[in-house]
Computed example of a mutant assay.
Amino acid sequence: MKYDVLHETLDTWFANHARDLPWRRPECTPWGIMVSEFMLQQTPVARVLPRWQEWLQRWPRPADLAAEPSGEAVRAWGRLGYPRRALRLHAAAAAIVAGHGGEVPDTYDELLQLPGVGNYTAAAIASFAFGRRETVVDTNIRRVQARAIRGRALPEPALTAAESRLAAELLPSDAGAAVRWNASAMELGALVCTAKSPKCEQCPLLQTCHWVADGRPEPHYAPKGQSWHGTDRQVRGALMAVLRVSEAPVPPGLLLEPSVPDGVQPSAQVENALRKLHGLRADASQLERALSGLLDDRLAEQNDDGVQLPA
């Protein structure tokens, strides 16, 4: 086969260098793998590990999570970012209980029907949890393909049809080999073939990499960095931090004004989170916009007593 040497090379490298991650261990359940895939979207492994362990201890099965209010999922999500993932994972757990007897479905098509599960996540769960031959394409894999095969410094800004075709062409025909290829290519992109400072001298593909052979040309476009400080997203995160630590609804006045209304005595945790929120010095319109966004996204709800996580 055209890519046999490539597959064998990465197989050997992965066997010797792969990180010992709990969701890769044989005893990990499909649900544990599914939780990891939701958490790892746009979030580094180091931040995910402690949160994943807490979740699996508290909710070892989909039914355990589905039995809780969705707000508890958001609270337990902590500071992983993009908390809508917590709501979607909660909804997926409920769908698994309602439609699959509490067991994570084992095919791509069934997984794709679950709330919050897109093409990548369905393929990853089917591959890593059930050993299915599915084409898994994340940013790390796309970057390895771009450099090793296409001679490009970076993949395209968004997944293209050509990249998808290449990924399908690279996938081994044997299911077990396909699973290992998905895992090893992803790991190589995460540890060695990184976006900003690739460790080419440590790469098992150094001698055959088209990007290295072409003199490591610069990217064919200028990547756009994601801003954070001063953005609505930062303010939303600070608002969520207040709601996560509060045992009771928070009066809107506490969230929108730096002063504490008369008769209100927040706990030390809430007071600390409020101090961080108002330390951002966001103006009233940005605070209101951020709060409205949380309510619209159902990450929070408001009643006569104040604002809280979803019940």
Results as ranks from 00 to 15, higher is better:
179 V>G: 04
92 A>G: 10
311 A>I: 05
162 A>E: 15
47 R>G: 02
288 E>C: 05
246 S>D: 06
62 P>Y: 06
301 E>S: 11
86 A>H: 11
5 V>E: 15
133 R>N: 04
306 G>T: 08
142 R>C: 01
150 R>E: 13
132 R>D: 00
264 V>S: 09
102 G>R: 06
303 N>T: 00
141 I>P: 04
134 E>D: 07
221 Y>C: 11
148 A>Q: 02
108 Y>D: 00
43 T>C: 10
38 F>M: 03
15 A>L: 10
257 E>P: 08
119 N>H: 03
260 V>A: 02
78 G>L: 01
159 L>E: 12
235 V>I: 10
11 D>Y: 09
175 A>G: 06
262 D>G: 12
256 L>K: 06
23 W>S: 09
245 V>I: 10
28 C>R: 15
18 A>R: 13
260 V>Y: 07
150 R>A: 14
90 H>K: 12
66 A>E: 06
120 Y>Q: 07
284 A>P: 07
226 Q>A: 15
108 Y>T: 00
180 R>G: 01
24 R>T: 08
168 A>I: 08
25 R>F: 04
308 Q>T: 13
261 P>H: 08
29 T>E: 01
145 Q>G: 10
247 E>M: 09
33 I>P: 03
188 L>V: 00
31 W>M: 06
63 A>S: 14
181 W>L: 13
252 P>H: 09
173 S>H: 14
67 A>N: 09
171 L>G: 05
47 R>D: 03
189 G>K: 02
215 G>T: 12
195 A>R: 14
137 V>P: 02
181 W>R: 03
98 A>T: 02
236 R>Y: 00
205 L>M: 09
13 W>H: 09
73 A>Q: 00
64 D>M: 03
255 L>I: 06
92 A>F: 04
158 A>W: 11
29 T>V: 05
122 A>L: 02
71 G>M: 11
151 G>M: 07
290 A>M: 10
249 P>M: 09
66 A>V: 07
192 V>P: 06
287 L>M: 09
57 Q>I: 05
247 E>R: 12
241 A>N: 14
227 S>D: 12
